[in-house]
Design a protein around this nucleic acid. Sequence first.
DNA 1: TATTGTTATACTCTATAACTATA
DNA 2: TATAGTTATAGAGTATAACAATA
Lengths: 143, 143
Amino acid sequence: MTAMCPKSKHRHCEAWQLLVRFSFEQRSTLPALAAELDLSPAQCHLLNLIEPDRPMPMGELAGALSCDASNVTGLVDRLESRGLVQRSPSPEDRRVKVLSLTPLGARIRAALLDRMTSAPPTLGKLSAADQRALARILRQLLD
Amino acid sequence: MTAMCPKSKHRHCEAWQLLVRFSFEQRSTLPALAAELDLSPAQCHLLNLIEPDRPMPMGELAGALSCDASNVTGLVDRLESRGLVQRSPSPEDRRVKVLSLTPLGARIRAALLDRMTSAPPTLGKLSAADQRALARILRQLLD
DNA sequence: TATTGTTATACTCTATAACTATA
DNA sequence: TATAGTTATAGAGTATAACAATA
């Protein structure tokens, strides 16, 4: 049976609906998890995007966060004042500032991702084969 | 130091990491999608939790949102002033107020879920069998 | 006394518009 | 002129503490 809704002109599928439901549940769990590291959800999102040794221009960051550039300024101000990230002028274009993690920022980011991606007990409900299949399918989807 | 130490005392699995990555991507796409309906992400989260004809006490809502009760007050104030939700006193316990969708609120909620769960083009990369498998596995996981 | 929801307060998050310094 | 980032401003989201009404 397909999960189509006859009143909608859009196509739906159950898999996508479940993924959306998952993301709403994550929206509930992230704040408490982030608070353990004195981070807000928005700060987690930003830290997640800055990989160690991969500086990123502020503007690119705003694009990746899908928010206004002026918002990134304040977000970075607070992270920089805590010593988690660092602004550096770009050598190529002096208008651009690239953002990088400090060693402390890299540690906090690693701790965050460690907590976020640690498998919850509910995952044990899946067989090993299903866990592999889920990873394989999501890999395709998120490519 | 532990900065570059990949060791963790937590268990991880790739499937869960991919789900977390998906939820971060949702955090980027929701604001624009919500704005089409003049909603904020937080308002979307709240509306998602209130099913039509299923009134919910304010306190229960705070629990489901994993936020403080005082936060729900303001959130509901704004939705109520737009005529999307309605507070009613509970007949059993006069301290409690239950929240329900107005007819307009139910329509907005339906439009929101329709947009959020409409399958994106990327889903076409999956075979029909993989889409079914993904749905089956997620159903188990989110049960 | 304990609980539900609100108010007061102080932050952070976010967008818009105006500004600066580059290009 | 156009672009990258900031500042100023305003409103929304969020938590803490104190409070009112009810249990």
